[in-house]
Write a protein that binds this DNA or RNA. Structure first.
Lengths: 341, 341
DNA sequence: CACCTTATACTCATAATCAGCATAAGAACA
DNA sequence: TGTTCTTATGCTGATTATGAGTATAAGGTG
């Protein structure tokens, strides 16, 4: 229905795209946060900073959005460069976190809106203003590394989770939690789904098995004792990291993003080891090469690598043209591709 | 390296998780924005609002984040409910837009941080405070509907784009643009990839073939004349919509999200028509049913639908258990599954 | 040289996919 | 009361992808 009264003021040269009513609202600072991943010598790595010296906990490179930043991504790049001297190549937006009940560093609850990004880089020699170091990301999620069979912590994790599920308030809530548990950890039927990194982290968090939960929400009722799993990070950075790892594990299957982590020339086994490091599972060697080659993901360099320990391997490089040919080029690794270590 | 001077103040009971230095930064208002999709009678629909009466352009439901909102998603739900009386079921975060050079409604450049969400709903009877109406989303992207063969506008769109590509500054820039064009519109080799909605929209936008570009960036050099394609929306809402449609088109393939749009019981053809409406392509009927049935996505209700026009069809319902069984249940539609209309 | 290593080629059974044809079961209409 | 339209559903045969092997090649080391 037309509302002619609206035109009374008649000042704007063209109709307002956004009404005045939605322009008010709480103003707050925005934080930009980077999960910077690499893979060197078969280990998945993440770039962390420590602002407060040795005793401080590890954090992701991050900083506030400033007026000079033309785009969010440029602001992020500036902060990372400043804090770690690492320049970023591939960058994609990950998620925006903004729950009000998150705790600030000094303990008071506050809204902090964090726009998190995922970055993939090749090299790994940080030396910024903050103390920046590369860490194997399975330090934070030891239950996620299945490359050498079932991880050692898993049994203890599952014991802790089972206790938490039993203690759930209400019958429906208990059944729901058990279902989530079965899905995320493949207890009962189903097999391990390597993409559910965030789901698993959140289950542990809710069950009080994560240090951050005890640290940031001490007043949250049922304080759980017993072990807490994985190394803690600052604020909710471990949750952000879990989001990033899950996203990456999904993405390598349908986009050729692994190559952002590889050197210009590499062997097929190096590529396989990298994929395995990221996904946390072992792959069948012959089928992996067939997949990579018949998809046209790589091309010959003509050179050989002699430091294989056995027969020399062909060195290949990423074939950029595949982006134009295939709709979803990636390193698919279906469920149940596990191979004994 | 430890910095003992840091502990001088000694007020915080535990080490600060986030250093003080990153707490300053520009404060600004956050906008929450919802792309609400439905599918009724074989048409893909989106819920739009008009704040300024008839002559105003269509907009997505949106409003500022307020202090009362405990989470971003709850804030979004509150705004949508207020503006459209539509309560949301399935909601997922889409993307956070925050370029500084976006224009506000009154013409001055400003930073507006918009957290956009994708929502899928079943019913479609809006009556909120703003004038809310359902629209077929192909009004905004007429080149995206390939259900009845090549869309009529496509030839004109490609003519316009080809002109823009020729006019690109520099040789490398021109080649890059041509490559993007070939990828997004399947000119030359390759076939139509229905997920590249955003890529196509941005190509048109950059080529000046989109009303918003001429409206919001009048000073941006080469003003293009000639046709502008698709219906315009407020601010950058059409870009947000393109992001949402692309995301949904990808997601239906590996997650059972279509069922969020279906009534409790439906026929297999209704399901197929919905998938086709979303993806914009026709599917092979027999293979579609086999896929859906052998994946265990649906189960019998025992009832029949008589209003098919032909032989009555079985009514089925979504089988929730599939979420526990399959790692990636979804309605896969590989490339080249096209069928003449 | 035997024997370790890793690389690479090839095979084979099974499962999924693509594109059809054939038949079933209702409504509309002569 | 057929005839003809519609849509639903069952089934087949060719092709391709996947999973899990075996066999052989080609470098090292003792």
């Amino acid at each position: 229905m037309p509302k002619p009264a609206d035109k009374a003021a008649g000042l704007a040269p063209r109709p307002r795209a956004v009404p005045r009513e939605i322009e008010r609202g709480a103003a707050l600072a925005i934080r930009l946060c980077a999960v910077i991943l690499a893979a060197t010598t078969h280990e998945p790595r993440i770039l962390t900073v420590r602002f407060g010296g040795e005793e401080a906990v590890e954090a992701l490179p991050s900083g506030p959005l400033e007026v000079e930043h033309r785009t969010l991504e440029l602001g992020l790049r500036a902060w990372v460069e400043r804090q770690t001297s690492q320049s970023l190549g591939y960058v994609e937006q990950l998620y925006t976190f903004g729950d009000r009940d998150r705790l600030e560093g000094d303990g008071r609850p506050a809204r902090a809106l964090t726009v998190a990004y995922l970055a993939l880089v090749r090299e790994a020699r940080p030396s910024g203003s903050a103390e920046a170091t590369w860490q194997n990301w399975y330090r934070y999620f030891p239950w996620e590394d299945w490359r050498d069979g079932e991880p050692a912590v898993l049994a203890a994790v599952l014991r802790g989770l089972a206790g938490g599920a039993r203690a759930a308030p209400g019958d429906a809530e208990r059944r729901l939690r058990e279902e989530r548990l079965g899905l995320a950890f493949a207890v009962g039927a189903g097999s391990w789904n390597e993409e559910l990194v965030l789901e698993r982290y959140e289950l542990l968090y809710e069950a009080g098995l994560i240090t951050e939960r005890r640290r940031d929400l001490p007043a949250a009722g049922e304080v759980v004792h017993g072990p807490a799993f994985g190394r803690a990070m600052a604020a909710d950075h471990r949750r952000i990291l879990a989001t990033a790892v899950g996203r990456l594990r999904g993405k390598i299957k349908y986009r050729p993003v692994v190559f952002e982590l590889m050197p210009p020339a590499f062997t097929l086994l190096q590529l396989q080891r990298t994929v395995e490091a990221l996904s946390g599972v072992r792959l069948h060697k012959q089928n992996f090469r067939r997949l990579v080659e018949q998809q046209g993901l790589v091309e010959e360099t003509g050179e050989l690598s002699l430091d294989t320990g056995g027969r020399p391997a062909r060195l290949v490089r990423f074939r950029r043209e595949v982006l134009l040919e295939r709709p979803a080029p990636g390193v698919r690794l279906r469920a149940g591709r596990r191979v004994p270590a």
